[in-house]
């Protein structure tokens, strides 16, 4: 565990807390893509199956349980409790366009052709693109609430910090996982446009409105 890894995990944790607080406090999930949230729930449940087969550390297990349970809670809030506020008219990204290629890629390019390893690989690939329905929704409506943009910033920052963690681990531990690195870079690149808007608008106290 190095400082980049810890900062990345904390950023990830913060993103989820911001999202849940936004939904809970405003009693609304307006502006949030349910499709991205379903993909994230799929990411965590397929990646953390080793929770039942392998104990790594208390930190590791607690975080895994947190990510799985909060992603399920988010889906419950969006599709059951605050269903009326869910903006499904703007949440139209076809997730099959992501799930099908990611499944094929996971079956073809993996470290080991075993069920757990293929599911882990699928989850890494899926996570890299899971935010696309949300970004598509923001671009479709042309804006995002400030709290939603804080959520997106923390969520994007988390994988960017993991890249620094991987650089650190490569130099100091000789460790690298090419699948995680390539997917992590793709994931971070997808946020670049949003990062630019966040820094130039939200930080300066303006709402996140896309240029017409």
């Amino acid at each position: 565990m190095n400082v980049f890894r810890l900062a990345g995990d904390l950023s990830h944790l913060l993103a989820i807390i911001i999202l849940l607080l936004k939904i809970w406090k405003t009693r609304s999930c307006a502006g949030i893509s349910g499709r991205s949230q379903i993909l994230f729930a799929l990411v965590y449940t397929t990646r953390y199956l080793d929770l039942f087969t392998n104990f790594i550390s208390l930190y590791n297990s607690v975080m895994k349980v947190f990510f799985i349970s909060t992603s399920c809670a988010t889906i419950y809030l969006m599709y059951v409790k605050f269903k009326a506020t869910y903006d499904h008219n703007h949440d139209t990204f076809r997730i099959g366009f992501l799930l099908i290629p990611v499944t094929i890629l996971g079956l073809l390019i993996n470290h080991d052709f075993t069920p757990l390893e293929v599911l882990w690989t699928f989850s890494i690939y899926l996570e890299s693109v899971a935010i696309l329905p949300q970004l598509f929704m923001v671009s479709k409506t042309g804006d995002a609430e400030t709290i939603t943009s804080h959520y997106l910033f923390c969520l994007g920052l988390y994988r960017a910090l993991y890249i620094f963690n991987w650089i650190y681990r490569y130099y100091f531990e000789g460790f690298y996982d090419l699948i995680a690195i390539v997917a992590g870079v793709v994931q971070t690149v997808l946020y670049c446009d949003f990062f630019y808007l966040y820094v130039t608008r939200v930080i300066k106290g303006k709402a996140l409105k896309l240029p017409a």
């Binding site: 995990d9 990830h12 080793d50 392998n54 895994k64 996982d177």
Partner: peptide, 10 residues
């Protein structure tokens, strides 16, 4: 290559 048991990252 790294085996599954070495995956400590989240």
């Amino acid at each position: 290559l790294e085996s599954f048991k070495q995956k400590d990252e989240l």
